[in-house]
């Protein structure tokens, strides 16, 4: 199954706004994606409550996993998003 490992780029970690942006992006993918940290089992990436509970901090490594024909494209898009500093990201769709 395709996977991507990526370091959380958001300064505040995968919390608050960065988590919401990530979950919204995951929900927009056509395949279900899971996310896990080194110490916690995978959770659905489209569940904000579950993603928050991972408590992934800035610099933590997370692993994304998906299956299906568009899995690679979905994982690439989400991995790119996660690597960015979403706290200072002002070009998000709901701002401006």
């Amino acid at each position: 199954m395709p996977t991507r490992s990526v370091t959380v780029g958001a300064t505040s970690g995968l919390h608050a706004r960065p988590a919401a942006l990530f979950v919204a992006a995951a929900a927009a993918q056509s395949v279900p994606v899971t996310i896990r940290t080194s110490d916690k089992p995978p959770v659905p990436a489209r569940s904000l409550l579950s993603v928050l509970a991972l408590g992934a901090k800035h610099g933590a490594e997370v692993t994304l996993e998906a299956d299906g024909p568009t899995a690679d494209a979905a994982l690439d898009a989400l991995a790119t998003l996660l690597a960015r500093d979403l706290d200072s990201d002002d070009e998000s769709p709901d701002h401006g």
Partner: peptide, 20 residues
């Protein structure tokens, strides 16, 4: 205020959480 709006938006996403 962006901070207040973010909190409300996050709460809305929690209420819509598919796991929930």
């Amino acid at each position: 205020a962006r901070a207040a709006a973010d909190v409300l938006r996050a709460q809305a996403m929690m209420a819509q959480d598919p796991e929930l």
